[in-house]
Amino acid sequence: MNREQALFEYTLRIADDSLILGHRVSEWCGHGPILEEDIAMTNIALDLVGQATNFLEYAAKVDGKGKTADDLAFLRYDRDYRNALLVEQKNGHFGDTMARQFFFDVFRKLFFEGLTKSTDETLAAIAEKSLKETKYHLKHSSEWVIRLGDGTEESHQKIQESINNLWRFTEELFFSNDVDTMLLESGIAVDLNALYPLWKSQVAHVLAEATLEIPSGTFQQKGGRTGFHSEHLGYLLAEMQYMQRAYPGMEW
């Protein structure tokens, strides 16, 4: 693996997290718990699709094989997606969606803060823009986790269950391998090991305010970063890629 290949892989991870989560959040459009929240969630989906576009454009450039961001988004095989397992999990109920979003947003904010200092100027610039969006997403998702946790008995129970169910996908957000090692040396990548304790303490802080418990002793799943996904991704891609697969090579 050379530096370009590592950078391509690294950019895909960031892009695919946004792409797949953006897709999931967009599934809510028209079905939110109240009109105002429908609009809020669509804003988040739009931000994520925008981030995915920016990172995929860069990935395509680094790749240097004449592909476009759309080619990367819509024409890869399942095993070539690099998103974390967390973001491909199904929406479930509103609490499941907010818990997923909250875990991801805490990670994403820390990650983008680090990436703005990357020696890769393009990554740093996209991170700068995305960070502003992510701060708002985090505010939104933490407030909901707190509201649901400290709301009614029913909501408390539901969101605690969501937190417990999704906890097993959280450590993977901090997965790193030789891609990271190579890029850390040149100051491109973010040191994920250093972020993990920060993530844990920030999550604990919000969960405490929400009167929720931190799950313990849960086995951690991983595989997304190396292309081993859950069963859900195949269906998501079948839908997302439908047009490009059914009408190959056409412009829209």
Partner: peptide, 14 residues
């Protein structure tokens, strides 16, 4: 519509 003032500000923004 919003449950409280904080949410009303966020909803107004969106």
């Amino acid at each position: 519509r919003a449950a409280d003032a904080e949410m009303a500000i966020d909803n107004a923004r969106d």
